[in-house]
Design a protein around this nucleic acid. Structure first.
Length: 422
RNA sequence: GUGAGCGUAGCUCAACGGUUAGAGCACUGGACUGUGGCUCCAGGGGUUGAGGGUUCGAAUCCCUUCGCUCACCCCA
């Protein structure tokens, strides 16, 4: 009989092992705490939707829709897609359930896996995880600042603030962007010869993208290109100035980057990114912006909206390795069958008192003590024939080696007291 | 989708084209019968990613393929 070959993970997909889940739990818990302190509530969304939702919501000509979606037909022949981002789904739910009748802004957050068919790389996976925030139905610039401020507050709470940089920009709206786009394209056409081939191709398709080019050769030209900020219409200009004023009032450090361009088609006015220099090419930890008009484009009310997405993998990469996670307070070591039978209900009782307890099976005392030491468990309880005769357990402090006898029936309470140090 | 680098034990890595592919860590057992951290000994573990080719002989050279990594691209 031959051993079957083990099956391995699919490319670009990975397991998050126990040593790492500790960090994930921390990120998620801090996010929930910070967001809920701002009045945001969780919404949970399906992992797949009708393909059309993403085509309409993200933009037919974006890279995501054109070549990165996991699209398949279900048994009824309908075209479905694993979500490549969360905003479209969230807005669909907002519209479908009439959440727009709630007091505005409607503040929501969600988290979970997204799927994009890309070549994996440091900080980039085919199944990756985002934490999303969306604030819907309110156009006030203070909401932009609230959302951005909340994002930075989360990074501060995670101890990452000093290693990150916040950039903000305004990319105008339908009133001013088309004209700017033409001006920029005209400028680029004039200097097409000095641009890299990729950028030359972008001049007509999406000239704003040229501004985002990282090739050194294109930089001088980009530096001298017309700035979107000078081309903003009065409405966008005022909105951006007020957003900046509120950011200043919040005491947030940021850089205005007039060349920041975001990859999704739906953004208007405020856009922002949180960047790091520690993760190689995948330097964006979070990004977002305002998307007034998108909800209507998806068949909903004419409500404005703003939101962001955080890349959880990238955040946990930055957090680095930490403690391996919560340990039980005590390892209970029974010596023999009678002791095991006596300890099982006591372990259960201790857990009901809220203390973490692990029971050892079958090994010699020496081996179990060694295991307890290596696990880092602070206390060990030994129950053998001697203890059973006296109706006692031996409690050992692993750090000091000190031992004392405690009555068996007092064991759960004693352990619970140890589990609440200080 | 494009390019480059790399695939040897669970992990980190050795092995000039030449005997039966090794070491450290980890794991299991013993020295030590109910007391951890140290030390010593022993043991389990490998289709050298896979397939083909060259050769008397391949972990080593060649081709193909898969995977990983990094970068382009894109973005979280």
């Amino acid at each position: 009989m031959t051993q079957p070959r083990p099956i391995r993970t699919v490319r670009g997909v990975r397991d998050i092992l126990p040593g790492e889940t500790v960090r994930w739990q921390r990120v998620e818990a801090e996010a929930r705490r910070v967001f809920e302190a701002h009045g945001y509530r969780e919404i949970r969304l399906p992992l797949f939707e009708r393909t059309e939702l993403f085509a309409r919501g993200i933009g037919e000509t974006t890279d995501i829709v054109e070549k990165e979606m996991y699209t398949f037909q279900d048994r009824s022949g309908e075209s479905l897609t694993l979500r490549p981002e969360a905003t479209a789904s969230l807005l669909r739910a907002y519209i479908e359930h009439g959440l727009h009748v709630q007091p505005k802004p409607v503040r929501l957050y969600t988290l979970g896996p997204m799927f994009r068919y890309e070549r994996p790389q440091a900080g980039r996976y085919r199944q990756f995880h985002q934490i999303n925030v969306e604030a819907l139905g309110e156009a006030h610039p203070a909401l932009d600042a609230e959302v951005i401020g909340m994002l930075m507050e989360l990074f501060r709470a995670l101890g990452l603030a000093e290693r990150l940089a916040l950039q903000v920009n305004s990319i105008g709206d339908e009133a001013c962007r088309p004209a700017f786009r033409e001006r920029l394209a005209a400028y680029l056409r004039e200097h097409a010869g000095e641009l890299c081939p990729e950028c030359r191709g972008r001049i007509e398709r999406n000239p704003l993208r040229v501004l985002d080019c990282k090739r050194p050769g294109c930089q001088p030209l980009i530096d001298k290109a017309p700035s979107i900020l000078e081309a903003l219409c009065p409405g966008c200009r005022e909105h951006f100035e007020r957003v900046r004023g509120y950011l200043d009032a919040l005491g947030l450090a940021y850089r205005v980057n007039p060349r920041m361009v975001r990859g999704l088609d739906y953004y208007v006015r405020t856009t922002f990114e949180v960047l790091t220099e520690e993760l190689g090419a995948q330097n964006a930890l979070a990004g977002g912006g305002r998307y007034d008009g998108l909800i209507q484009a998806l068949g909903g009310p004419p409500d404005p909206g703003i939101g962001f997405a955080i890349g959880v993998e990238r955040v946990t990469l930055l957090l680095g390795a930490g403690p391996d996670g919560p340990l039980p307070t005590a390892l209970l070591i029974p010596l023999g069958e009678a002791a095991l039978t006596a300890l099982l209900p006591l372990a259960q009782a201790a857990r009901r008192h809220g203390v973490g307890v692990e029971v050892a099976y079958g090994r010699k005392l020496r081996g179990e003590l060694e295991r307890a030491h290596r696990l880092g468990v602070p206390y060990v309880v030994i129950v053998g024939e001697d203890e059973l005769r006296a109706d006692r357990a031996t409690l050992r402090d692993m750090a000091s080696g000190a031992q004392r006898a405690i009555p068996l029936d007092r064991l759960p309470e004693e352990l619970a007291a140890l589990g609440r140090p200080g």
